[in-house]
Amino acid sequence: MTSPTPNSVADFFLEVYGADRLYITCLVAFVDGDDQISTFGSDNIEHMPPWLRMMTAKLKSGSVASVSMVVRVFDFDNTIEVIGARGRVAIPCKEIYMFRFDPQETIGFNVAETTMMHCTDADTGELMPVEAGVRFGSGANVIAEISAK
């Protein structure tokens, strides 16, 4: 059985949640050491499928070492209030899933791994508290569900 591709994972979320609730960020690690970050939301999500197909082809050809994907699913019916530069503002709650696609395998991170990665300061390695209104989902469960189809 073939590992799920970046497109099949994105298609899963589009089908389950719809484009208006998604914000997907991808980090492409090129073999030559360069990285590229691309983000897709409701304003440009139509560009995501062809972009992901291109990255999948680059994974298979070996010009890309890996593609990491963070999927944020926003729940606009449930909000939390935060204090920003302009005072109190209501922001939607969200659920976060994380994946890594390598040439040989697809990894969906479980809830504990996703929480740890999301709550670790990239510069210092220090743990940070979970943001209010954030839940973590299991990418491993998503991969299992896609693979079972």
Results as ranks from 00 to 15, higher is better:
N44T: 07
G137K: 01
A144V: 03
V134H: 05
R21E: 06
F101E: 00
D121L: 02
V134D: 01
G18S: 05
D11F: 04
D32C: 06
A85G: 07
N141F: 10
L127C: 10
A29T: 13
A57E: 12
C93H: 14
I37E: 12
T115N: 14
T5A: 02
T2W: 08
E81M: 05
E15K: 13
A57F: 07
T25N: 08
Q104C: 09
D123H: 09
S147Q: 09
L127A: 15
F40L: 06
N78K: 13
R21D: 06
F99Y: 15
V130N: 10
S68Y: 05
D123K: 12
V64K: 02
R21P: 04
A132Q: 14
A90R: 10
I45M: 15
V89Y: 15
V134G: 07
T115E: 13
F99P: 01
D11W: 03
S61G: 07
P6A: 08
G84H: 00
K58V: 03
F12L: 04
P49D: 00
D43T: 15
Q104G: 14
G18V: 02
D34N: 13
V142L: 04
I143R: 06
F74K: 12
D121W: 01
V89R: 12
T115L: 15
V130M: 13
E131V: 13
M128A: 14
K94R: 14
S63K: 10
T39K: 07
V16G: 01
D75A: 05
G87Y: 02
N78Y: 10
N7D: 06
G125I: 05
F101P: 08
A19M: 03
D77M: 04
R100E: 11
I91K: 10
G87L: 02
M55I: 02
S42T: 14
T25A: 12
V64R: 03
W51P: 02
F12A: 07
S42L: 08
R53M: 11
F74V: 01
V73E: 05
R53C: 10
V64D: 00
V9D: 00
M1Q: 07
C26W: 03
D77G: 09
G137I: 00
